[in-house]
Design a binder for these strands. Sequence first.
DNA 1: CAGGATCCAGGGCGATACTG
DNA 2: CAGTATCGCCCTGGATCCTG
Lengths: 118, 118
Amino acid sequence: MKNKSNISGKVQPCGVDYAFRRIGGKYKARILWHLNSKKILRYGELSRTLPDITTKMLTQTLRELEDDQLIIREMFHEVPPKVEYSLSSTGRELIPFIEHLHNWGKKQLENEVFANQN
Amino acid sequence: MKNKSNISGKVQPCGVDYAFRRIGGKYKARILWHLNSKKILRYGELSRTLPDITTKMLTQTLRELEDDQLIIREMFHEVPPKVEYSLSSTGRELIPFIEHLHNWGKKQLENEVFANQN
DNA sequence: CAGGATCCAGGGCGATACTG
DNA sequence: CAGTATCGCCCTGGATCCTG
């Protein structure tokens, strides 16, 4: 399939480019990945699962994922507060992709460790 | 290249995180994608295929992909110069992932256009 | 033709403190 | 518990000009 350059000024929208803009954040794929394996996670659980993320980034990333309708946020008005996050159906469509990426990354990591035996 | 945050062994190495740092650049997936459909592309061809990328970014991205051994760079010492880029076997392993992402992005784009007709 | 070299902005991201 | 609010760094990426 050719990428014909558009005369009307805008570049032809590219699915890869679009998708990367959507889930290209530093933590988005990881969050989706964990949400898939655990199905439902509370805010604090996510925070513990991803120890290297600050509350600001976690909240911000979750908001973006929610705005993109990749995850579902369910809030319980209780004391103490409770919020549950889960994958939406659209978000679930990304799992095979993340899974592939995950396997590839794991393999590369192992190769790298093997190569760095110094 | 992004932060090396956890590759040095503090946090448990996550394949998704690793992979994203590897191909998380703005154009990397797109370049791999085009290299797969065309098999071999010269620098100028890539430049025309991706009209929205400057020479600096194209060169820089190609270097990083080459350093990561995802693409192969073959240089011909001729006049005028000629350089051909193609996927490595490791890079080719990423194609199913990019394909999935591409299809997902295309579908989302169509839905978005459809939804914005109100 | 296929880059290299500089300069520079925008914003992604982090650290820290505070809140309903 | 589940977030907000600020402040600021620095890295990604853009614009422009130069070269073998």
